[in-house]
C-alpha cells in the first residue's frame, strides 16, 4: 500500500473508493491535524478544522491539478484555510496565537527535530528562517501560518502598518531567494 502515490490515492478518493479514502486519511491525518492544532490552539476545534479539511479535499479531489503543486501542499493549504475560517471570528487581534510562543522561542540555530512527511523540505525551510531577522521571521510566520493580516501584525507588534507590510514582503522574498539557492546546490 505504501507504494501508491498521493495522486493515485486522491484520484481513488475522488471516485469514492473507500480503500483509497482510508489510505489517504491514514497517510495525511497527523500532518493535517498538526497544522490545524497549531493554528487553532485547541484540540476540539482542531479536530473540527481537520475534519472540514478532509471533507473539502474529498469534495474537490477531482479538481486537483498536479501541475500546480503536490497533493500534500494542496491539502495543507486547504487545512490552513479551514482552520483560519474557524478562528478568524473569535480571534482577539491584540494577542498572539497560543502556539506561537513555542515557534517564536525556538532555537533557530539548531537542527529541527521535526519528523514529518516532508522532512527534507522542512529542514531547508528551517535553515532559511534561521537567517531572517527576528522581526521578519515573526511577521512571515504570523501571516503565512496563522493568517494574520498586515494590520493585525502591526497591532500585535505595535508597529506602523507600512512597517508590517514591509516585514512580511521582505521576509517572503528573502525566503524565496534562499530556498531557490538551496534547491540549486
Amino acid at each position: 500500500m505504501w507504494t501508491v502515490t498521493d495522486e493515485a490515492l486522491l484520484a481513488g478518493m475522488a471516485a469514492n473508493d473507500a480503500e483509497a479514502a482510508t489510505a489517504f486519511v491514514e497517510r495525511f491525518q497527523r500532518r493535517v491535524f498538526g497544522l490545524a492544532l497549531t493554528i487553532v490552539g485547541e484540540t476540539r476545534t482542531a479536530e473540527d478544522a481537520a475534519q472540514e479539511a478532509f471533507a473539502r479535499a474529498w469534495k474537490h479531489a477531482a479538481a486537483f491539478d498536479a501541475r500546480r503543486g503536490s497533493v500534500a501542499t494542496w491539502l495543507l493549504t486547504i487545512t490552513r484555510n479551514a482552520a483560519i475560517d474557524m478562528v478568524r471570528v473569535r480571534r482577539a487581534v491584540a494577542t498572539p496565537p497560543e502556539t506561537f510562543a513555542a515557534l517564536d522561542e525556538r532555537d533557530w540555530g539548531a537542527d529541527p527535530a521535526d519528523r514529518n512527511l516532508m522532512a527534507d523540505d522542512a529542514r531547508r525551510l528551517h535553515a532559511a528562517l534561521a537567517r531572517l531577522s527576528d522581526e521578519q521571521r515573526r511577521a512571515v510566520i504570523l501571516a503565512g501560518l496563522y493568517g494574520y493580516t498586515a494590520r493585525e501584525v502591526a497591532e500585535l507588534e505595535a508597529i506602523p502598518l507600512g512597517t508590517a507590510k514591509t516585514r512580511i514582503r521582505t521576509a517572503l522574498i528573502r525566503l524565496r531567494g534562499m530556498l531557490v539557492d538551496e534547491g540549486r546546490q
Binding site: Q29, G69, D114, G144, L145
Partner: peptide, 22 residues
C-alpha cells in the same frame, strides 16, 4: 512566491489526532 508561502505550512509539527478521528 506561492511555493514559498506553501513551504511555511511545514513549520507546524505533526500531531496525533484524537482516537476515532479517521
Amino acid at each position: 512566491l506561492s511555493e514559498t508561502a506553501d513551504a511555511v505550512l511545514l513549520l507546524a509539527p505533526e500531531a496525533e489526532p484524537p482516537p476515532g478521528f479517521q
